[in-house]
Design a protein around this nucleic acid. Sequence first.
RNA 1: GCGCCUGUAGCUCAGUUGGAUUAGAGCGGUGGCCUUCGAAGCCAUAGGUCGGGCGUUCGAGUCGCCCCAGGCGCGCCA
Length: 546
Amino acid sequence: MKGKLSQIIEESLKKAISVRELQLDKFPFSVIIEKPKDKVHGDLSVSIAFSLAEKCKKSPLEVASIIYKHLKPETGFIEKVEIAGGGFLNFFISKTYLCKSMIEITRKGNKFGHSNTGGGKRIQVEFASVGPTGPVHIGHSRGAVIGDVLANILEEVGYRVTREYYINDVGTQIEILGKSLMARYEEILGKKPEVLEGGYEGQYISNLAIKLKEKYGEGCLSKDVSFFSCFAVNEILVGIKKDFEDFGVRFDKWVNESELYHRGEVKNTIELLKKKGWTTLENGALWFADDVLVRSSGVPTYFASDIAYHLGKYKRKFYCIIDIWGQDHHGHVSRLGNALKVIGCDVNKLEVILYQLVSLSRRGEPVKMSTRKGEFITLREVMDEVGRDSIRFFFLMRKSSSHLNFDLELAKAQSLENPIYYVQYAHARIFSIFREAKKQFKIKNSPTINDWRELEILNEEVEIDIMKKLAFFPDEIAKIALAREPQGLTVYLQELAALFHRFYTEHRVISNNLNLTHARFVLINSVQIVLAKGLRLMGIEPRKRM
RNA sequence: GCGCCUGUAGCUCAGUUGGAUUAGAGCGGUGGCCUUCGAAGCCAUAGGUCGGGCGUUCGAGUCGCCCCAGGCGCGCCA
């Protein structure tokens, strides 16, 4: 709708310029359309007269009047236009348009909201990538939700999305993991292992050791660390994949860091940086600016392989590359960008979304989490405790840059008052109405409608508000996709649910007035379609009963 | 010390690329609403110097600078 209106304004401006009523050297490249807070200011409003006033040497009111004069009476979309507040142009959407929107929703069903603004361009979203040194903990799950839902939304607006998980399966941490497992294995076989400083200590390590013993007996005592590392990584990865699967997160591609080494990509990338003259040798290590690419031991760092990984992404020719990382990686952003820049990558294509880590508490007492010490709450545990849908909704209620405090006891205690139930309840109520309707009429769950005039009978204020809210859904999705802010979905769904609950309380759907009943069936069916759509985009299954 | 993020009602947070003389929602508080499609709901009411200051602008919760408070990062870890 905003796009439609900005086009109308642009045409008016062009006309005004061509007849020299507005003196502008440059055409303003974008017309910003806003949604006023107050209904009396219309459904959509434009404040461009203020910004043009100075350039044209006219008052905002004069500019607004000129734009107003050249507006083409539009095709039933706009009911009326007002100039107010000294230069605002306020537009009121026609009821005809709203009624026609309901027909569109009814016909399109779960395809409503889909658009092709992305034009099939390919976007890669890399998210939730954590080293396979332990089970997924709840902190990482936030990145998983943000990435998964953002990917859903980008697909909805017509991009082809590749969801990718980068597995850091080599390096110091993996070696420590192997040593930790080795020590535990030796321990349960009655040997006294070497003391290991800073090793991984979680119960899952012991479980892996037991598994090794059951499978090979004492046969692994002669194996070296890399054997244990490899075994641990593979086993843990199986668990991670299962965790994400049960959490409703899917990936199209899993990339192993080790593969980048086997294919020589890391080496080639380092050579490329060297050749371009951007590296220095100091204390036996190879540096790029203030960071080490290759250790004095000859082993490349994570930094080096990540440059290689991203160079690979560029070679795959994505329109846009999105990385979703925990805030603790923010120091990595600029140096990665700088390195990519000097080897010829267009860094404008790279977007890094940082999310604040989840801090966990129990009855207000902070819970310290450390993967290494095994002191952490896993995604699995929280899923069992509060349910996957609640976690998803909760994690999407705040913008990614906000801190998120997650109190386990509170989450459990509030589970009945969790906002997700508010939205789900609205959805379930609609099904309930249709169940009741089935008893009284012989109707299907999905009413059909061909003539928009049948909806003109919907005159209550809250009905009009609902229709507007629904008609704006595609705009909402587009905005969320563009801003890369999937949390906007929770706000929209709560607002729509609130309108529905009010409508439900104030008015009856099923009544003696058959025409009104039918129109309201169409209305609530549309609400159901959009609620379900929004929830599914969030990876939450809409409920028919509570 | 340097860098990133955050600071809005008692609590948890919205606030649309700066917009309209009354800054919103949920929880919690108070008072109402079930003979009728699900009360996990609705309505009303109380509660705020938008951390503080200066500035830019026709216009600032939103942008800039400084200060205060909290979180995180600053490794030849990833």
